[in-house]
Amino acid sequence: MAKIKRTKLVSLRKENFWSQKDVVNILHQEFGIKITNSYYGMIEQGARNPTLKLGVAISKIFNVGIDEIFFEHQHNKMLF
């Protein structure tokens, strides 16, 4: 399976002027989730997939649905 960079996640972080370390700190402070900066970077790069708990926490931080960040939407060409 090819890794897909999560550009939406990166852009949400940058819109808030946060570093990856900032997101990791928020995850720890607000949700009690401890991950490394490196692991978070791998999530952004698509090299790692977060657990459901971590994915939900990330989506709450950015106030968007989990599907907007972690699921690729493909349209079925037959329907169009």
Rank of each mutant, 00 (worst) to 15 (best):
M1C: 07
A2M: 12
K3T: 09
K3R: 09
K3H: 05
K3Y: 08
I4H: 13
T7G: 05
K8G: 04
L9E: 03
V10M: 03
L12I: 01
L12F: 06
L12A: 02
R13G: 00
K14R: 15
K14V: 06
E15P: 00
N16W: 13
F17N: 14
W18G: 04
S19I: 00
K21N: 09
K21V: 06
K21C: 01
K21W: 01
D22E: 09
V23F: 01
V24D: 04
N25Y: 14
N25V: 12
I26Q: 10
I26S: 10
L27T: 02
H28V: 04
H28D: 13
Q29G: 11
Q29P: 06
Q29N: 15
E30L: 09
E30V: 02
E30K: 13
I33M: 05
I33T: 11
K34T: 11
I35P: 01
I35N: 04
T36W: 04
T36A: 08
T36K: 05
N37Y: 00
N37M: 05
N37H: 03
S38C: 07
Y39I: 03
Y40V: 05
Y40W: 09
Y40S: 01
G41S: 15
M42N: 13
M42Q: 12
E44K: 01
E44M: 00
E44R: 02
Q45F: 02
Q45T: 07
G46I: 00
G46A: 02
A47T: 08
R48F: 12
N49G: 07
N49P: 00
N49K: 10
N49Q: 14
P50N: 04
T51L: 13
T51M: 07
K53I: 15
K53G: 08
K53L: 15
L54V: 15
G55T: 13
G55F: 10
G55W: 09
G55I: 13
V56C: 15
V56P: 12
V56F: 15
A57G: 04
I58A: 03
S59M: 07
S59D: 04
I61W: 08
I61V: 15
F62L: 04
F62C: 10
F62G: 05
N63C: 03
V64H: 05
V64G: 07
V64D: 05
G65V: 02
I66S: 13
I66R: 08
D67P: 00
D67G: 11
D67Q: 11
E68S: 11
I69F: 06
I69A: 04
I69W: 06
I69H: 10
F71P: 03
E72G: 12
E72D: 14
E72C: 08
H73Q: 08
Q74E: 13
H75I: 09
N76Q: 10
N76P: 04
K77I: 10
K77Y: 08
M78N: 13
F80K: 11
F80L: 12
F80V: 12
